[in-house]
Simulated scan of single mutants.
Amino acid sequence: MTPPNASAPQNAMAGIGLRIGAASAMALMAATVKLGATSYGLHPVEMLGWRFIFALPLTMLFVATRSGGLGLFRTGHKLAHIWRGVLGMVTMGFAYWSLMLLPLAEATALSFAAPLFATILAALLLADRVGWHRWSAIVLGFAGVLFVMQPQHSALPAKGLAVAVVAAFLVACVNITIRQISRYDPPETTVLWFTTISALCLGCVMPFVAEPHTAGEWLLIVCIALFGGTAQMLLTASLSVAPVPVVAPFDYTQLVWAVTLGWIMFGDLPPATTWTGAAIIVASGLYVLIRERRSSRIVRVPEG
């Protein structure tokens, strides 16, 4: 079946620029979430709820400007989108939790294990053929994860490391779900359904977790929503103008932002083991992506 955006004009440089913008927005959102939780005591569920409630109008405006407009909300696979929405909310909850427990660089580095998990799930659940090249890259990538985690003598909290790995696994599950949905719906439909479902579900929870806030706290909350919504819109736009194998490698620029923001905002400088592990994870992820290039099967919508 022809992908939904196959007829869109392709522009590699525009797609790369949009993808770098998406990665930057994701890093800024992560830093703002960590700042809100650790410095201002904001409840993670409340931050997540406001993120979607504030982002929903922006998302609808963005989709309205796309070909098909808000008619993109129509789909014949509502249950698949509901499942993706629920799974996405749980995934983001774990991602926010990991940011509260770990330094920004380490949480970001471990999140890049998601493509490795996704390749394993694709082989197990979708009967994808995974040759020894990709299996070798996966083994190498998880060696990089161990470098970051330092299981024998890590100064990082074990709970935080476990939460980050679970978050990466859940991102892989989301990617597999999106891959299935992308066979019949365009990325804009997925983003619109995800944002709408999340805003509605979390809106029902907000009365139990929402609290009065100062002007500074509201500014943080609005920034989380703007950064997260912008990341999703820029990534969606990148998928419509350039092939996934061209733009996806630039997701890793988020790590540069994470190290920089972690240092500036929290005084965290990652040790040599984190740098080594992150480099191995990124290298293995890129190699898996290169091996996927022929089929262009990977579709990513960030959990942000």
Rank of each mutant, 00 (worst) to 15 (best):
G71V: 00
T108Q: 05
M29K: 03
A164C: 10
V246S: 09
E46M: 09
P4M: 06
P151D: 09
T195N: 00
M13W: 04
F194I: 14
M92Q: 12
T214Q: 13
A113Q: 02
G144T: 12
V90G: 03
F194D: 05
I197F: 03
F227M: 07
A225M: 13
R179M: 09
L121E: 11
V171D: 01
V63R: 10
G49W: 04
M47W: 07
L79A: 11
A95L: 12
A283T: 15
A237F: 01
G76H: 08
V165T: 15
F194P: 01
T214M: 03
G69D: 13
S24I: 08
G21A: 15
A164N: 12
R74M: 08
R66T: 11
A158S: 04
T236M: 09
T38W: 07
R297L: 03
V299D: 01
V130E: 12
P115G: 14
E106V: 05
L102K: 04
C223Y: 10
T59I: 13
L48E: 13
W97A: 15
R300Q: 10
A278I: 09
Q232F: 02
P157I: 12
P243S: 07
A155Q: 11
A14C: 02
G41H: 09
L146P: 03
T274R: 07
T108I: 11
V282H: 09
H133P: 02
G17H: 06
V205F: 02
Q152H: 08
L18R: 03
G68Y: 01
I221G: 13
G15V: 12
A25K: 00
Q10L: 11
T196H: 01
E211W: 07
P207C: 02
R66A: 00
V299K: 14
A27N: 02
V139L: 07
G160S: 00
V209C: 10
F250D: 08
F112I: 06
V130Q: 06
R134V: 09
I280W: 13
L261Y: 02
G160P: 06
A107E: 12
A283I: 05
Y287C: 07
L200F: 10
Q150M: 15
H77E: 05
L235A: 02
A55C: 08
L161S: 14
G203Q: 01
G262C: 14
H77M: 12
G93T: 06
V145L: 13
M13I: 04
C201M: 15
I82E: 02
L125A: 04
G15Y: 05
I264M: 02
T75L: 08
G21K: 06
G203K: 03
I178E: 09
R179E: 08
I178Q: 07
L110A: 14
V165Y: 04
E106I: 09
A31N: 01
T274H: 10
F112P: 10
P44M: 03
V90E: 13
N175H: 08
A242I: 08
L140S: 08
M92V: 13
